[in-house]
Amino acid sequence: MAGLKTRKRQRLVVMIVAVAVLALAAFLIVFAGRQTGSFNLFLQPSEVFQQKVAVGQRFRLGGLVETGSVARKDDGLTYEFRVTDCAADLPVSYTGIMPSLFREGQGVVSEGALNADGVFVADTVLAKHDENYAAPGTLPKNEEACGHPEALTAGQDGR
């Protein structure tokens, strides 16, 4: 193994290693992130329809639990409900223990994918945590549809 005789060479080697690791990190961010499905789109029901999301593609669904839509199957563990952003709504099915804060009319974020029947099969459901916290992405983007006058003054991006 050759020693590093001069300061310049030492600096060069350190730089090369650092750049190599940084390149690896960049690769990680761009390529691997996409491959492993780490970057989940955050969609609301009407966007799901607009973008014609493919069956099986994972994404996060945000919205409100439609009032009167929650039903529980006979096995006691599977829940079916509809998530709405007031303009459109999407049927969701989830097997597991619901977060204790899950309520009709409240914000909810679920993660999963559409199945062939157009039902969003969720493997995680996050509900609103407390009165100071709305799960991000659950506030309807097309608020006019909810009859909310404040919607008219909200920003163009809908938040």
Binding site: I29, A32, G33, T36, G37, S38, F39, N40, L41, F42, R60, P136, G137
Partner: peptide, 10 residues
Amino acid sequence: GQISVGAPFF
């Protein structure tokens, strides 16, 4: 648009 960076990335 909005995305979330999930655990697999990290």
